[in-house]
């Protein structure tokens, strides 16, 4: 495997009394998609910001950060020349139309005139926005705005694309479209760094994920392998707590792990037949038997309680 394009060692960030990021270490290999998962307030956005110089990490002597060999604390310009950033909030110029937004942003990279025109045409076509060329920003849907911001981040042909919750609040069609585009970019050799709290998104796109909680890395690895290693493959969700009594006779067997979540009880097990047997005791609408997904792992790792930022 070739050398990592991002290397972060012992990254810390404190806001007032809150430790937003604690002793974070990770490496991102080239042309992969690397995902940061975590509830709101886990420190995902802060990590992204530190990588392109939008936030300063704490001054601890053993902190090392390198993006393409550059340190974001001193060489943010080089990093931003090689990277495209899609921030969490839409920040297009609403006074201008689609093309004007891109043209003005091209200036920052010294992409002007014919080169700019060609690049913009290509990107609008790529993000399926060609018909909206002349549209005002106010006339665009949430999904179109997001796609336009992604197009804007791609203006300089970046080697790294940093996306902070790229599909939050978008409908399934647009999410699928954005995922397809991101996969295409990865094939072209662009490395992708994304934060999300959609498990599905992380699972679909990422070669590697980090699950963060309260500023700390809890788990890291390939999503499929993480599931294999850290959680039972099947789960029986009992939707109403009161019907659990019918399952008590299975308790001594102990071949499952029971988790409570407000009104629901979840039985995790390696044996699908055991869960099926348990399910037979319940009425059709009382349970849901399924394979585990990243969400189960995520909740197992980060807990089911809400924090003050959620």
């Amino acid at each position: 495997m070739s050398e990592a394009i991002i290397r972060a060692k012992n990254v810390n960030k404190t806001y007032g009394r809150v430790k937003a990021v604690k002793n974070l270490n990770f490496e991102v290999p080239p042309a992969t998609c690397f995902g940061f998962l975590g509830p709101n307030g886990a420190g995902k956005t802060t990590v992204m910001k530190i990588l392109y110089g939008k936030a300063n990490p704490d001054r601890t002597h053993d902190t090392e950060i390198s993006v393409f060999g550059y340190d974001p604390r001193y060489e943010e310009l080089q990093i931003k020349t090689l990277s495209g950033v899609v921030p969490q909030e839409d920040n297009l110029d609403s006074e201008l139309n689609v093309i004007q937004n891109l043209k003005i942003f091209g200036r920052f990279y010294q992409i002007t005139g014919k080169t700019a025109q060609q690049r913009i045409d290509y990107l609008l076509n790529f993000m399926e926005l060609s018909e909206k060329k002349k549209a005002k920003i106010r006339e665009l849907s949430g999904g179109m705005k997001r796609r336009l911001i992604i197009a804007r981040a791609l203006l300089n042909n970046p080697r790294l694309l940093i996306l902070d919750e790229p599909t939050t609040g978008l409908d399934p069609q647009v999410r699928q479209l954005i995922w397809d585009k991101l996969r295409n970019l990865k094939k072209e050799g662009v490395s992708i760094l994304l934060t999300t709290h959609y498990m599905e998104e992380a699972f679909q796109l990422s070669d590697s994920i980090i699950i963060m909680h309260k500023g700390e890395k809890i788990l890291e690895g390939n999503p499929r392998e993480l599931l294999k290693r850290h959680i039972e493959p099947h789960v029986l969700e009992v939707i109403d707590k009161t019907s659990v009594e019918k399952l008590e006779r299975f308790a001594p067997d102990g071949n499952f792990r029971k988790e409570e979540s407000r009104e629901r009880i979840l039985y995790y097990s390696r044996s699908v037949s055991l869960l099926q047997k348990m399910a037979e005791e319940l009425a059709a609408g009382e349970y849901y038997l399924r394979q585990v997904n990243l969400e189960d792992l995520f909740l197992k790792a980060t807990g089911r309680e809400l924090n003050e930022l959620q």
């Binding site: 310009l77 931003k80 921030p87 110029d93 920052f108 990279y109």
Partner: peptide
């Protein structure tokens, strides 16, 4: 409000 600076600071400027 508009977060215009956040967008601009993702381009190569300080």
């Amino acid at each position: 409000f508009d977060k215009v600076y956040d967008g601009m600071l993702s381009a190569p400027i300080t």
